[in-house]
């Protein structure tokens, strides 16, 4: 089993700040980050009734399928995907090689503006993910526990989940 993806409080707040700014700068309705296996990381925007869990899983599926298509034709991947609807549009891009950034926007913005703002935000978020990686590596090297809530989990705790 692979190593868990970890999100720390400090970096989470930085990412929240970055996507909040992106949402405002791009005049977008909603911005969210999801990892490639479909786990939602952070979101911000006005679409309050949006089912973000489903959105995250379908986005990851979409990116995975498109990557598969890219490999079939000898491409490494398609780093940017764009879906145009009658009212709302979705712009999808890859950050730090492993995180998917999704921007939902309507006629109040434009694809050009979103692309421009995403580019700037990507540099900022790449740095934040790099900082998370550095922190994990440093803790691993020093043998510091990540203070995992599971270190002391008991079988009774697990059984209780199903009762």
């Amino acid at each position: 089993m692979s190593t868990p993806v970890v999100m720390y409080e400090q970096e989470y707040e930085q990412l929240k700040g970055a996507i909040t700014r992106l949402c405002a700068d791009a005049n977008a309705k909603f911005v969210f980050l999801v990892d490639r296996s479909g786990q939602q990381i952070a979101s911000h925007g006005e679409m309050i009734n949006l089912d973000t869990t489903s959105l995250a899983s379908l986005t990851a599926g979409n990116v995975a399928a498109t990557d598969g298509l890219a490999h079939l034709i000898g491409e490494r991947g398609f780093p940017v995907l764009s879906h145009e609807g009658e009212r709302d549009n979705i712009h999808i891009s890859i950050i730090a090689a492993r995180v998917i950034l999704v921007v939902i926007f309507d006629g109040r913005s434009s694809l050009g503006l979103v692309r421009l703002r995403v580019k700037r935000a990507t540099a900022e978020m790449n740095a934040i993910f790099h900082s998370i990686d550095t922190k994990i590596e440093r803790e691993r090297d020093l043998g510091i526990s990540l203070d995992s809530p599971f270190a002391e989990i008991t079988e009774e705790d697990i059984d209780a989940l199903f009762n």
């Binding site: 089993m1 692979s2 190593t3 868990p4 993806v5 970890v6 999100m7 720390y8 409080e9 989470y12 707040e13 990892d35 296996s37 786990q39 990381i41 990540l146 995992s148 809530p149």
Partner: peptide
Amino acid sequence: MTFINYAS
């Protein structure tokens, strides 16, 4: 891949 979010 397990995702552990300490913030939320």
